Deep mutational scan, measured.
Amino acid sequence: DLSALRVEEVQNVINAMQKILECPICLELIKEPVSTKCDHIFCKFCMLKLLNQKKGPSQCPLCKNDITKRSLQESTRFSQLVEELLKIICAFQLDTGLEYANSYNFAKKENNSPEHLKDEVSIIQSMGYRNRAKRLLQSEPENPSLQETSLSVQLSNLGTVRTLRTKQRIQPQRTSVYIELGSDSSEDTVNKATYCSVGDQELLQITPQGTRDEISLDSAKKAACEFSETDVTNTEHHQPSNNDLNTTEKRAAERHPEKYQGSSVSNLHVEPCGTNTHASSLQHENSSLLLTKDRMNVEKAEF
């Protein structure tokens, strides 16, 4: 173990290094160091905050020279020094078990990766560091076993998940096959086929009936047209017969005018059967003409 005197000496050296690497504005270890034209180094955030307070150039807090945003430059070497100082402080805390008085939040800088452990060898070769390295080497064999167990647990979990997924996939297939086998029997399929065939026959029977009705309507229309044509021909046949009657009536009127007047009046009210309204109107006109002729003949006879 380190003596108290040596611990104090190391602590004083760390404090001196820390004062050199402090920012003059925030009085902390410089984060993202930036250098000016006057070779003074500050935190990048502190300098941008200072420049944004005034429009135009501002003055350096140490030498009062003008500073602009374009004049600022990043210093990589200074950032490396800060990183190495942080590593020294971490090693000091691990070796002594004491917390550094002016320690900052170094938890963000710590890294437990194997590459980081290899890099620590180049920091300080001390008894405390050696003991700590031995402890780490002793704890390393235990870690692979834990990793193997965790991997086995994960693989077993994956296997159970896969088996569950396969079961879920197989179950719908089985149910679907069961439904297909038990849903419709052979008799049901035959009945469905016969039902479809009967429906098709009914459709075939319905369509000819409609065509037959249309044919019957067409035949009825044709018969009505033929009947009207026969009526017209009958009226045409009746007209010459009426003319013959008129000639006979004229002759009778010349011989017996008194008797014919009474008979002509009675004939006005008689309509021949089986004739249309057109034929009756023609008869009325003929009878009126005959009456006028008879009157003329009677007057001539009187004179």
Rank of each mutant, 00 (worst) to 15 (best):
Y260N: 09
L5I: 09
K49I: 00
D39N: 03
E254V: 10
L51W: 13
R165D: 03
L50D: 12
R6A: 06
I206K: 15
A193F: 00
I67K: 11
N112H: 14
V13D: 03
N276L: 13
L21G: 11
E140C: 06
S156I: 01
L48S: 09
K55M: 05
S58I: 11
E74V: 03
T233C: 01
H40P: 15
S35A: 07
H269C: 03
P257M: 01
D294F: 03
Q261R: 05
E28M: 12
Q209M: 00
E84S: 10
L27N: 11
P272V: 00
E32M: 07
D294N: 05
P141C: 12
H116M: 04
Q147K: 12
R255A: 09
I206M: 12
H269G: 13
I30P: 06
Q154A: 11
F45S: 10
T233N: 05
S145I: 08
V153Y: 10
S266Y: 01
L27I: 03
P272D: 13
R212V: 10
H256K: 07
I25T: 09
Y104T: 15
F106L: 11
H40N: 10
A16D: 07
V265I: 11
S156T: 06
C60N: 14
N52I: 12
R212P: 01
Y104Q: 15
G97S: 12
H278W: 00
S150L: 01
T233H: 04
I67Y: 08
G56K: 00
R212C: 05
R70N: 08
A107E: 05
L21M: 08
E140N: 12
C43P: 15
S145F: 01
V7M: 02
L245V: 14
R130T: 05
N12D: 15
C60V: 15
T149N: 09
N191C: 04
L282C: 07
E22M: 12
T230L: 03
Y260W: 08
H256G: 09
R169Q: 11
E226G: 00
S75C: 05
P208Y: 00
D1S: 08
K108H: 00
L21Y: 02
Q93K: 15
T207V: 10
L29Y: 02
Q138N: 09
F42M: 09
E120K: 10
E142D: 10
S216R: 03
S228P: 07
Q261K: 12
L48F: 12
T194N: 07
L51K: 02
L2V: 15
A252I: 14
E187L: 01
R70D: 08
S145T: 08
T36V: 04
D218Y: 02
C90G: 06
N143H: 02
T235N: 01
N276T: 02
E254F: 14
T247C: 08
Q53I: 10
M296H: 06
Q209G: 01
D218V: 06
